[in-house]
Nucleic acid binder design. Structure first.
Length: 1006
RNA sequence: GGGCGAUUAGCUCAGUGGGAGAGCGCUGCCUUCACACGGCAGAGGUCACUGGUUCGAUCCCAGUAUCGCCCACCA
């Protein structure tokens, strides 16, 4: 199916509105950095963009914050009363909202700030009411008495997904339930919650369980009470394998039991109150033994358990206890253990809404990125349950439903007489502040405007449902309510559906799923085309950040420590597709350094160009300029592509790599000679390219680093224009220059290899010297000729190009990089043991690789089955490892050519006699580690030993000389043998040894 | 219980059916006129384990182990 039409002319993001519970945390920094990158990028592409900022009232969370504040003043929300309390929260909301908005601005978020919205502002509240009424009228919102998740601390209902499950080590208690007619006969029931047995209304067994067939239909005398309950058969609830195969049924305090109770017409018996305490009235109804009732009354449920257990023990009714792992539900806002609680609540019937929401994602109309989350979304959506949307709190959208006191007088309960677990605080809890007192039989008047008259009786004694809506109800409307919906505003027409939603995984169900359902239901369109899900930020140890753990990384602190751009760059660089990311502070520091680097480059360019471009581009550009422009094209392509794929990590990596390691390390260095010498012929052209490329870099970098790029932009003469209004760079075809890139690789290989040699020989970088160079490739030889002046300037050396490696000098360190051979003269008295060790290691690894390749190339099955290109490549590499032709291949696979091309081939030139003698003597005295220097690679197996071998398979290094074997002849004189290897290296066309002189004569000569 | 993901350098992480990568950290040299928050050059990895497919596996498949996440009403 075709995707819903792309709106290429507009690009809209709505911010996931931060909660007004405090200040910005690191997750916000990540989330908003990514959005800002996208928005700035699109805006610079000339697309009409809109980024709507805003904040969320965050019902329970915000109410909790303010209640905590009140508590410090010794007050409760009841002390203030609903109206005053809400006013107080509004004040806090103002303060917190301002803080957050200020912090977003500090982060550089380029939102359309005049569109700032709040989930409880007038427009959005109207949208909420309209939606509620519409869905109610369509039967998609209803009120009913159900068992719901209840937080006994927040004192409100929660939706299923607002409960977090935590694995705990529980205990399974085996309890004896005696039969009423015969106390000797009994059933054993296994339960993890023995205290709830007081509310049992039945015991269930499996209908086909032979053990219990004869019990079905009989009565149990419920322990600790004077009640009897029936034994029933239920194949759904009972798993014969588990426990004893007999299950107690407590409909008011367990979801399964509630359903079982409904199946069997069992009336729930509530024994816990709304604060999860043992409810006296409930216990009375449950006919709990009086003494126990007195003990348990108003005890917290967790304290009641040991009492119940103790009492059971006293009566010999507790048969067994065993460990039993189980999951405990906790409130996602305050981590209190939630209780199933039977109460009248409002629900959204989600089934019909889910169908198109599933289809939208299945067909790809809505794209979820990374795609892996798609199944998560679909799985949840396909098993969706009705959504409990009423909350017994004060802060939020009060439900637009009213009740007529006259018509509903039978359905409004007094706390003291409810028997609904409300008796605990009788007299203290003001009546009708909680909807629990309005039974599900009451008839609500649902209306967009405040109802004042009862349509039934015409009376005016109405009151509004005290509950408020789940925060996520208004959030679900955010993509269109912020655009003026339900009015068909110009904004709505232009920017809906939104382009991209950027959010964290943690609110996929809470928010994303609901937006899709509501969006499609109410607007007939998907709310957004792409959902980009980013990882969650964890600390360096991988722990979830939380205030209580003290491992919170405060983005604002980091911003002031390292700069906002560094933090933004860090966030983007870590946004690889994945589940979570660990934030190590060193990383921010590293990118701070990057910012500094850019800043210094700007200073350099300012210094040499004064920000003034020559009027026209130069007719011919110097070679380094050609190269950097070609590479710049490459960088533009890579960054753009990465952003298109939401690969912020790749985008930043390309920026970092290009700017630091190509532009600064190579281009600026190569530009220096023509800038620093007066009247250099390339001076004007270089200045032009330098400035032009740097400006493009600023624009390329701007979406990620808005601050430094703007500052640099302003420091150049741009007549006060903001870089924000500039265009994002696009490739310029005429700048791509394969030849220049290839030549530059040769230059880099040459320079890096030479530097390696310098480092090996300990020659200071600033010491001028003459170096030699040659290449076996004709094209490269020609290029090398042209590159000579650049190589000379960057190496501060004189370069002599030769036809062969027959260098016009006696003592040369010869290094090989691909086709390239570089010779560096060596001081006569330089000790080379360390050098040789390093060289040897490299030779060995090269040799290994070479023989592996040789085997492969020689293998018939490989030749037969592998692709011809692969065969060709392997053959090329065999040659290049020996004779060196791999440069072209290198260029295809990497942009860096410093180290990896280098191999050291050999050390040449006949050694001075004194060195030979020294080494031989040392060898005889066995005080130099010949063993350290042995090398199979260099050993020639064909050598016949004459006399005693002093050092077999030895590569003895004497200054510059390499000997393979040292013999003591029968007469006691010594003989050194040098020879050319005929091992694998020769096959690979590598001359390992070039010393063939008669060593003995050298030795004896002195 | 189900599903998903991870396991690659000391650390944090990219990556690919055919030569193992980056950043940070580490080692050595260098205060050279953009930058010591710097430059140059290095060291460092059985790509978790075991099988399989393949001419060839770090990559694909199966299994194992460890860790993590999500979902779930086995009392």
């Amino acid at each position: 199916q075709p995707r819903q039409t792309e709106k290429s002319e507009s690009y809209c993001i709505v911010i996931p509105p931060p909660n007004v519970t405090g200040s910005l945390h690191i997750g916000h920094a990540l989330n908003n950095t990514l959005q800002d990158i996208l928005i700035r990028w699109k805006r610079m592409q000339g697309i009409q963009t809109l980024w709507i900022p805003g904040t969320d009232h965050a019902g329970i969370a915000t109410q909790n914050v303010v209640e905590r504040q009140l508590k410090e003043e010794g007050l409760s929300r009841e002390d203030l009363g609903r109206q005053a309390f809400i006013e107080r929260v509004w004040k806090w909301r103002q303060q917190s909202g301002d803080t957050i908005i200020g912090q977003l601005k500090q982060l550089g978020a380029s939102c359309d700030w005049d569109r700032l919205r709040f989930t409880m502002d007038e427009g959005l509240s109207l949208a909420v009411r309209k939606v509620f009424v519409q869905l109610f009228d369509e039967g998609l919102i209803y009120r009913g008495e159900r068992l719901i998740n209840w937080c006994p601390r927040c004192l409100t209902a929660l939706s299923d997904i607002e409960v977090e499950h935590e694995d705990i080590k529980g205990t399974l208690y085996y309890i004896r339930y005696n039969l009423a007619e015969d106390p000797e006969a009994f059933l054993t029931v296994a339960t993890t919650r023995p205290e709830t047995l007081l509310g049992d209304t039945a015991v269930a067994v499996h209908p086909e369980d032979p053990r219990y067939q004869h019990f079905i239909g009989k009565q149990i005398k419920l322990p600790l009470t004077t009640r009897t309950i029936p034994i029933i058969a239920d194949p759904i609830l009972v798993d014969r394998e588990f426990g004893t195969g007999a299950v107690k049924i407590t409909p008011a305090h367990d979801f399964n039991d509630f359903e079982a109770g409904e199946r069997h017409g069992l009336k729930p018996l509530t024994i816990l109150d709304f604060k999860a305490r043992m409810d006296p009235l409930g216990l009375k109804h449950a006919m709990v033994n009086q003494a126990l009732l007195n003990t348990l009354s108003l005890k917290a449920v967790q304290d009641a358990r040991p009492i119940v257990i103790e009492t059971l023990k006293e009566q010999d009714l507790l048969l067994k206890e065993e460990d039993h792992p189980m999951a405990l539900g906790k409130c996602y806002r305050c981590k209190t253990v939630v209780e199933p609680y039977l109460s009248p609540q409002w629900f959204v019937k989600t089934g019909p809404l889910a169908i198109p929401a599933i289809e939208a994602v299945e067909t790809g109309n809505i794209r979820i990125i990374p795609e892996g989350w798609k199944n998560n979304y679909l799985g949840w959506m396909r098993n969706i349950k009705d959504w409990c949307i009423s909350r017994q709190i004060w802060w939020g959208h009060q439900i637009p439903a009213w009740y007529c006191r006259t018509c509903n007088k039978d359905y409004l309960l007094e706390p003291s007489s409810t028997g609904k677990g409300m008796s605990g605080d009788q007299g203290k809890t003001p009546s009708l502040t909680m909807s629990c007192f309005i039974t599900s039989d009451a008839k609500p008047i649902v209306s967009k405007t405040d109802a004042t008259v009862c349509p039934q009786c015409g009376g005016s004694d109405l009151f509004q449902d005290p509950d408020v809506l789940d925060t996520w109800f208004s959030s679900a409307l955010w993509p269109f309510s912020t655009l003026g919906w339900p009015e068909q505003t110009q904004d709505f027409k232009t920017f809906y559906p939104n382009a991209t939603l950027v959010t964290g995984l943690d609110i996929l169900f809470f928010w994303v799923a609901r937006m899709v359902m509501m969006g499609i239901k109410l607007t007939g369109q998907i709310p957004f085309r792409d959902v980009y899900i980013h990882a969650l930020v964890r600390d360096a140890e991988g722990q979830k950040m939380s205030k209580s753990k003290g491992n919170v990384i405060d983005p604002l602190t980091k911003m002031s420590q390292y700069g906002t751009d560094a933090l933004r760059f860090t966030m983007a660089s870590m946004a690889s597709p994945g589940r979570d990311m660990k934030l190590a502070e060193e990383r921010i520091e590293g990118y701070r350094n990057f910012v500094t680097k850019i800043w210094n480059a700007a200073r350099f360019i300012q210094l040499h160009t004064h920000g003034i471009k020559t009027s026209a581009p130069p007719e011919s550009r110097p070679f380094p300029d050609q190269w950097i422009l070609s590479r710049l094209n490459h960088a533009i392509r890579e960054v753009t592509q990465a952003l298109e794929n939401y690969r912020f990590d790749q985008a930043t990596s390309h920026l970092y790599q290009f700017i630091w390691h190509e532009y600064c390390d190579w281009y600026i260095e190569l530009a220096k000679p023509s800038l620093q010498q007066d009247k250099h012929p390339d001076g004007a052209a270089t200045r032009h390219t330098l400035l032009e490329s740097f400006e493009i870099i600023q624009r390329l970098l701007h979406p990620v680093m808005p601050f430094i790029t703007e500052e640099i932009w302003q420091s150049f003469p741009h007549e006060g224009q903001s870089i924000m209004t500039q265009r994002f760079p696009t490739e310029r075809r005429e700048w791509t220059n394969a030849q220049a890139e290839q030549d530059f690789s040769l230059l880099q290989a040459f320079v890096s290899t030479t530097r390696t040699g310098r480092a090996l020989l300990n020659i200071p970088a600033n010491q001028p010297l003459t170096i030699f160079g040659t290449t076996t490739n004709d094209d490269e030889a020609a290029s090398l000729n042209n590159l000579q002046p650049y190589i000379e300037s960057i190496l501060r050396s004189t370069l002599t190009l030769a036809q062969t490696t027959d260098w016009p000098s006696d003592r040369i360190l010869q290094l090989v990089a691909g086709n390239l051979t570089i010779g560096i003269p060596v001081e006569p008295d330089l000790e080379l043991n360390q050098v040789v060790k390093k060289v040897k290691k490299q030779i060995e690894s090269k040799h290994k690789e070479c023989s592996r390749l040789q085997d492969r190339v020689a293998s018939p099955s490989f030749r037969e089955k592998a692709e011809s290109a692969v065969i060709q490549e392997s053959e090329d590499r065999v040659i290049s490892l020996g004779a060196g032709t791999s440069l072209a291949h290198k260029q295809r696979t990497t942009t860096r050519h410093h180290v990896d091309l280098m191999s050291v081939k050999t050390i040449v030139a006949p050694p001075p006699p004194s060195h030979i003698r020294k080494i031989v003597q040392a060898a005889l005295e066995e005080d130099i580690g010949l063993g350290d220097l042995t090398s199979n690679v260099l050993f020639s197996p064909g050598m016949s030993a004459q006399g005693q071998i002093v050092a077999k398979e030895a590569m003895v290094v004497a200054g510059l000389a390499v000997a393979q074997e040292v013999f003591r002849q029968i007469d006691g004189s010594l003989q050194l043998k040098f020879h050319q290897s005929d091992g694998a290296w020769v096959k690979a066309n590598t001359q390992l040894l070039t010393i063939t002189g008669n060593a003995q004569s050298l030795l004896q000569g002195e």
